[in-house]
Every structure is written in structure tokens, then in C-alpha cells.
């Protein structure tokens, strides 16, 4: 294929690597060497992840965590533009400023739908297994070039600005990947079966409402622990939905499926384990409390969870 997902990882790695060079050189950062090393290692894992043996990547990950644990990751100075500079540029460009930002979603959708499975000769244009991801990467590259031309800035400025944003996110940038790692270790260690055994113990077998209640709450809780509703569904469905709801109460699987997944998503909204959705955005938006997004989401999540329980109960009951 012409644009593979590995190509996107290389672009990500190069951006990170260039950012880390500026961090190494940032005299305003009291721990510039350690901070630079953090972003440097991170970039190497992105850039060479498929070349370096996993054991060494694992060691590098642990080293990054140690740097953060010792307080070695600090912020520096970024030479931001002044309010006045921004205002002059804004007046000059007006709403053209939106163009590169809008190009990202538009080109991604167009690329993902338009080039899916399209070949030149015998080569796929986009990696057929990861079309959306590759389309997003290519869309960003086009948007980067457009943004540089529009704002008349050099690639160096683009990197400096990226570093400002990257350091604003800080350690949270690796948390999603690390949590995914924890997920695989939990699965290997059999945490899933233990949790589902525990939940199943609470089921009073003859009360339909209680079964639905335990199933939905279980989906949400399990998702909160694993950070991922996809991991929760097979375990909870095999433990509760199939033996009790479908076999015993004759529930229609089509009714149960989406509602139980939504119950899981209610859990996703309430857990720091879903870092990509909850913690990284808090860092990205400069929120002092990293759990602020979760705090905002909890009331909606609980109400929707309650609605799911009632809805599932009624659907199963009316069929009986």
C-alpha cells in the first residue's frame, strides 16, 4: 500500500522527536534534560515500535514512567505570540483561519469513504485495515501545509507550536497507551472472570428486574475498571445476559445488545481509566482538575444508566 499506518506512526514520531530537541534546549525548564528525554523516548517508541523488540520497548516505557514519577517532567517557555500579534494576524486572515482546521475532519471523512479499498495498480492507496486512521494522518499533513502557507510560518514554528501543545498535555499523552497495556495484563491475569464471578453471585435468579439491574450496573462497573466497554461486553454477556436473560427469560438479543453497550459507555464517561476521552482532553483544555470532564459527565451518565435499566427491563418483560 502507498500510505500504511506505519507511515503515520513515523510522521508522529518525527513530530515528537523534533519537539523533544526544543525541550532539551529550553533553558527555562529546570529539568530540561529529563523532560527532553521523556519526549525523546516516547518518540522513539512511536517511530521504531515495530523494529525494536517488545522487551526493550517495555523497558523504555518503564523509564518514561520513572522520569514522571521522580518529577522530572517540567514545563518550559514557548515564545508564544502576543495578544497583539494574534489580533493582527486574525484581522488579516479572518475566517480563512478555519480552513485548515476544517480540512482535517472533511478530508478524513472524504479520504476514509472515498479511498477505502481503492488501488493504484496493485497497491492500495490507504492501508485497508486502518483506512480512517491513515486518512486522518494524511488529512493532517495536508492541513499542516495549508496552515503554514496561510499563516506564512516556517516548519520550525510549526514544531515550536506543537511542542507548546505537547508539553501542555505532558504525561497524559502516554496514559492511554499505558492503560491499554494494563488492560491486556488484566485480561491475561483473568481479572475479567473474577469480576464476573463476583457479580454473578449477587444475582437473585428469579427477579427479572434484579438481573437486568445487575447486568447493566455490572457493564458500567466493569467498564470503569477496564476503561473500555468492549472488554466488558463479552465477559458480562457470557456471565449474565446469555444464561439468564436470553436463555431463561427469552429476551431478544437485538434488544439487549445496544442497550448493554450503552450501559458500558455510561461507565466510560465516569472513569479516569478511559484516559483518551476524559484525562487527555482535560490536559488539552488546560483544566486544573484533571477529573473535571468526568465530574461534568457523571450526572448525565447516571441518568442514562438508569434509563437503560428501565428500558431493558420493559423490553424483556413485554416479550415474556
Amino acid at each position: 500500500m502507498i500510505f500504511s499506518v506505519e507511515f503515520i506512526y513515523i510522521v508522529m514520531g518525527i513530530i515528537g522527536l523534533c519537539c523533544s530537541l526544543y525541550t532539551f534546549a529550553d533553558k527555562a525548564n529546570p529539568r530540561r534534560l529529563l523532560s527532553g528525554l521523556f519526549y525523546f523516548i516516547y518518540s522513539i517508541t512511536l517511530l521504531l515500535g515495530s523494529v525494536i523488540p517488545p522487551f526493550y520497548i517495555g523497558l523504555m516505557v518503564i523509564l518514561m514512567v520513572l522520569i514522571v514519577g521522580m518529577g522530572g517532567l517540567r514545563k518550559g517557555k514557548y515564545g508564544e505570540s502576543s495578544d497583539q500579534q494574534r489580533e493582527t494576524q486574525r484581522k488579516r486572515l479572518g475566517s480563512w483561519l478555519f480552513l485548515p482546521a476544517l480540512l482535517i475532519p472533511l478530508l478524513t471523512v472524504a479520504g476514509a469513504k472515498g479511498f477505502e479499498g481503492v488501488k493504484i495498480g496493485s497497491l492500495f492507496i490507504f492501508d485497508p485495515k486502518n483506512t480512517t486512521l491513515v486518512a486522518l494522518g494524511v488529512a493532517c499533513l495536508i492541513a499542516i501545509i495549508t496552515a503554514m502557507m496561510l499563516t506564512k510560518n516556517t516548519p520550525q514554528t510549526a514544531i515550536k507550536e506543537s511542542r507548546r501543545l505537547l508539553e501542555a498535555i505532558g504525561w497524559a499523552v502516554v496514559l492511554p497507551q499505558l492503560l491499554a497495556t494494563l488492560g491486556t495484563i488484566f485480561t491475561k491475569a483473568g481479572v475479567g472472570t473474577v469480576v464476573s464471578d463476583l457479580v454473578t453471585q449477587f444475582i437473585p435468579e428469579n427477579s427479572l428486574f434484579m438481573i437486568v439491574f445487575v447486568f447493566c450496573i455490572g457493564m458500567a462497573l466493569f467498564t470503569m475498571i477496564m476503561g473500555n466497554a468492549f472488554a466488558a461486553f463479552p465477559v458480562m454477556a457470557a456471565g449474565i445476559a446469555v444464561p439468564f436473560l436470553i436463555t431463561k427469560f427469552d429476551a431478544n438479543p437485538n434488544h439487549i445488545a445496544a442497550i448493554s453497550m450503552f450501559a458500558g459507555y455510561c461507565g466510560t464517561l465516569m472513569t479516569p481509566m478511559a484516559a483518551n476521552f476524559n484525562i487527555v482532553p482535560a490536559a488539552l483544555l488546560d483544566l486544573k482538575d484533571k477529573n473535571h470532564v468526568i465530574r461534568v459527565q457523571i450526572p448525565t451518565a447516571l441518568l442514562v444508566l438508569a434509563f437503560n435499566i428501565v428500558l431493558m427491563y420493559l423490553l424483556v418483560k413485554w416479550e415474556v
Binding site: Y9, I15, C140, P176
Partner: peptide, 22 residues
């Protein structure tokens, strides 16, 4: 090794890096 493997397979989660320059 598991740490390294999972970290590598989940690199797509860091995709936000490419949006930063824009």
C-alpha cells in the same frame, strides 16, 4: 515484554500528535 507489545500495538491512540502542528 507485554508492556512493550501492548504499547506498540496501541500507538494509534497517540494520533493526536499529527494534529498538533495545525
Amino acid at each position: 515484554t507485554q508492556f512493550g507489545e501492548a504499547f506498540t500495538t496501541n500507538r494509534y491512540m497517540s494520533i493526536l500528535l499529527v494534529t498538533l502542528p495545525v
